[in-house]
Amino acid sequence: MQEFRLTVGPASFRLLSEWKKPLNQMRELYAEYPAADIPDFTVRLEAVNALRRFIRPSAAINGDYMLPDAAPLPIEQGLLALEMGMNLQMALGWRRQMILHASAAERGGKALIMTGESGSGKSTLSALLGINGWRFMGDEFALIDPVNGEAVPYPRLISLKNEAITAMQDGAADIRFGPLMKATPKGDIRHMVPPADAIAQMSKRANPALILFPRFGHDPAIRDMPPSETFMRLTQASTNYVALGEQGFEALTGLVQNVPARALDYRSGEEAMELVEKLWEELA
């Protein structure tokens, strides 16, 4: 087994793989991230069986926490498999903060949190903000400290899908990308290294100031969201709310009582950015 250890925000990983290539890709893309002494989680990329290590190699995603019926991926998508394995460890094993399936960005010491279903554009929006004057905090998980309510950065590689790939490729010249992976179970995927300040400041927390529920592909509209609806949606977006028990309840009620929330419909990244800036002016 080949091994690579890294730290993303508060969490650290030991990545193990029977194949060198995906680990080398990770090493390159995560070059600026700190190493890890005693990692929080182990992720293993293993051949489905001995033959499949060489013939049509197929990688099972294993580790400390596993899904019983997770489908293996072809080894060309090994980088994606490792990222999925890391997400899975966080989703199932992390208890130090409340995990929201959300993206986040910071400005002026305050955090914007965006959550929504797959296809809502939350990942792309956080990437766009990250190259337009905001500090990117994460595109997959927003971590909320249950004691003081702070948002803790988790700036893993940004996972761009389908049209978002070309949009970002045209967006800025000095961005580093991983390999383009066509026709994965999640569509075309290409990973992007977060901006340098996002990595350098990955332990700098921020107080949540605005929660948005973006929705791509609808006429532009902004709707107030009452705390109870925000609460319900955020429990659905959280992977560990129930396990955190009373402290999860306190953290989430605190969040929805103190931070304004809006639903935001938009048709293009540009439009969304304008609306976000406007809301931020008003509310944050």
């Binding site: 005693i38 929080d40 130090r96 028990g245």
Partner: peptide, 21 residues
């Protein structure tokens, strides 16, 4: 024990408490 280990074991205790409840 190292701080990193203590944090992992604290998570494990929290999770055990959840399973017990």
């Amino acid at each position: 024990m190292p701080g990193g280990v203590a944090a992992i074991l604290e998570d494990a205790r929290l999770n055990a408490e959840y399973q017990r409840r």
